[in-house]
Amino acid sequence: MAQVLVRDLDDSIVARLKVMAKAENISLEQKFRDMAAREAMDIEARFENASRRSREQTRGSSLDSTALIREDRDRLVRSSTPASSSNGSSMIRWRMRR
């Protein structure tokens, strides 16, 4: 298992965490592990909820982005110019296929 060293914690924060840990009858170290695990799970849950809401909001959308993607690709191909290296040879120019 990994170890984490946390530097420069305010003494008052550490004191509060010790009180909280003691109230739960666990070590300060366990309190930190629990807090880290809970935070990681909360972040994952928030991401899943946001993803679900996004899917629900776009469900049944008639937006077809194909034309927009092609337009961007065509614009990029038109705007690119072959570059030359210092020895005068041309660099490879990539052509996008549809």
Results as ranks from 00 to 15, higher is better:
1 M>W: 04
3 Q>W: 00
4 V>C: 03
6 V>T: 14
6 V>S: 13
7 R>M: 03
9 L>Y: 04
12 S>W: 03
12 S>P: 06
13 I>W: 06
15 A>R: 04
16 R>I: 07
17 L>F: 03
18 K>F: 12
19 V>D: 12
20 M>I: 11
20 M>L: 15
21 A>G: 01
21 A>M: 02
22 K>R: 14
22 K>E: 02
23 A>W: 02
25 N>I: 05
27 S>M: 04
28 L>F: 02
29 E>S: 06
30 Q>Y: 02
30 Q>G: 04
31 K>T: 05
31 K>N: 06
34 D>V: 06
34 D>F: 11
35 M>Q: 14
36 A>D: 06
36 A>S: 00
36 A>R: 01
37 A>M: 01
39 E>C: 02
40 A>N: 01
43 I>T: 09
44 E>I: 07
45 A>M: 08
47 F>A: 09
47 F>Q: 11
48 E>D: 12
48 E>T: 08
48 E>G: 06
50 A>E: 14
51 S>C: 15
51 S>H: 14
52 R>H: 12
52 R>D: 02
52 R>M: 09
53 R>Y: 14
53 R>I: 07
54 S>T: 10
55 R>P: 02
55 R>N: 09
56 E>R: 09
57 Q>F: 01
57 Q>Y: 06
59 R>G: 12
59 R>S: 13
60 G>N: 05
60 G>I: 00
60 G>K: 01
61 S>L: 03
61 S>I: 00
61 S>T: 04
62 S>H: 08
63 L>G: 04
63 L>K: 13
64 D>S: 02
64 D>P: 00
65 S>N: 11
65 S>F: 14
66 T>Q: 13
70 R>T: 15
70 R>E: 13
71 E>T: 03
74 D>I: 05
74 D>Q: 03
74 D>A: 07
75 R>Q: 10
75 R>Y: 14
76 L>S: 08
77 V>R: 08
78 R>K: 14
79 S>V: 13
82 P>A: 10
82 P>G: 04
83 A>P: 06
83 A>W: 08
85 S>W: 10
85 S>G: 13
86 S>I: 14
87 N>K: 13
88 G>R: 04
90 S>Y: 11
92 I>D: 00
93 R>T: 01
94 W>M: 07
95 R>P: 00
96 M>A: 08
96 M>I: 09
96 M>R: 06
97 R>A: 05
